[in-house]
Design a protein around this nucleic acid. Structure first.
Lengths: 252, 252
DNA sequence: ATGCAGAGTAAGCGCCGTTAGCTAACACCA
DNA sequence: TGGTGTTAGCTAACGGCGCTTACTCTGCAT
């Protein structure tokens, strides 16, 4: 199936790759125009002046196509996050985390439909679990993992450098301890369980807020969530013991 | 149009009310069995041995039916929350808030599909906004407001009684201040803006965590979110200055 | 010249929401 | 009691949409 040889790129192969790319790009356009529910094979085919059956030359099913689009979107998101991280000055972990957080929200607000596909409730099944069983190796899975890692690595760095306050292992209830331990085991670097818990808590606040904003579950109180987002970032900075770094940045 | 007279309940009216109830209940069953996407007029009709067009005698469109189901679900959720609140012992605000929070998660975990309809990303449009323009008076709106009020009232009570730490008005960035002020104005009792902010922050943590759990966005780290939920509740208790009350409860 | 990949057409299968028109049962009043 | 209007349900039908398979044609590459 997979070709490793140096130059298997025949003329045909390149054409095929181009078509695959075009299909995925068109699918994304349809996603943006018609919403998650409108992301249909026929719609994609229509949009690019092809017929639906022709797409089966490139994707085995609609689900296959969607999964590939999801993977691409994760890739793009990760790229954007990493770019924001690498462009942050000063290039310290706290400031990089700040930059990534803001960029995450920025991407979400400017890519409503794509965000909905990646993180919406309709995604039940698209990105199945990558949990307990033999970890799924689908491209979407891998990309999602890379996405999470961006934030996880930064928080880990912050902890290594500045040791923010965390609960001791024996202050964590055993059932949670156990799960955190299992999760922790998936990483190359082992961290105290308390760090994992604090990271999760922060992640919930960050990610939860962005999801709520994008999906309209914050409209009952706010019409623009950005100020609240910034306020939460300050709160998170305090939790991670880097409020000083943020304050310093703002002075400039 | 609307009949106010004392007893307009003819035989027919009762039969009609029964049918309406049956339709909504069946719709809910379909929702549970088939998921949010499977909630179709025809499916409901099939399930109750009727034909789809007949449903138009009772609901003007599919959307109308769904909206009514949503309103019913909110009502049920509110009822359940209020029951949990009123059954909490000791009947103090902190303990009642704890009970409501747990009941909220419990309902969510035991009513996956219903929760998805109420709070999922597909809900874009079902519960439009009740924001800026003439506030929507749809039944779903009102029920949703009652839902939010359960938590808001308890936090307000806690603040009145124990004054947890809040940011002063001038510590809040002006844009956020403004929005909190506008939101606050919708309530009968005026509270400091800092209370509104802290409430929002807590709400994001609570609601965000439950949403993430239900929609599978926490599986990357936890396979059972309950311990983390409890840990977050402890964190929230600390924020609201009621950690002592919780600790005392646990000693029993 | 042969063969294979890419595209198209046709078709099958199913689903959806909705409207129109009919019949049968019911409620009500003379 | 009988007639009349109203209601509830049905069938049929319209006009869509979707995913997918089978078959055919075209044209490039070997």
């Amino acid at each position: 199936m997979a070709e490793l040889p140096v130059e298997p790129v025949s003329r045909r192969d390149r054409a095929r790759a181009d078509t695959v790319r075009e299909i995925k790009e068109t699918a994304r356009q349809v996603l943006v125009d018609q919403g998650v529910d409108g992301l249909a094979l026929r719609a994609v085919a229509r949009e690019m002046g092809m017929t639906a059956p022709a797409l089966y030359r490139y994707f085995s099913s609609r689900e296959d196509l969607v999964e590939n689009v999801v993977a691409d979107l994760y890739d793009e998101l990760v790229t954007v996050l990493e770019a924001a991280r690498d462009a942050a000055r000063p290039a310290t972990a706290p400031i990089q985390l700040l930059a990534c957080s803001r960029e995450f929200r920025r991407w979400a607000t400017t890519h409503h439909a794509e965000f909905g596909l990646l993180f919406g409730s309709a995604g039940d099944g698209v990105v199945p679990a990558h949990g307990m069983p033999g970890h799924d190796d689908s491209p979407a899975e891998l990309a999602a993992a890379r996405f999470g890692a961006v934030f996880a690595v930064l928080v880990a760095e912050i902890y290594m450098e500045r040791r923010f306050p965390i609960p001791a292992d024996d202050e964590i209830e055993p059932p949670l301890q156990e799960q955190l331990h299992a999760w922790c085991a998936k990483f190359p670097v082992q961290l105290p369980l308390g760090v994992m818990q604090v990271f999760l808590s922060c992640w919930i606040r960050l990610y939860g807020l962005v999801c709520m904003e994008i999906f309209g579950h914050l409209k009952f109180a706010l019409n623009d969530a950005e100020p609240m987002f910034e306020a939460e970032l300050h709160g998170l900075a305090r939790v991670l013991g880097v409020a000083d770094a943020y304050a310093e940045l703002e002075r400039a």
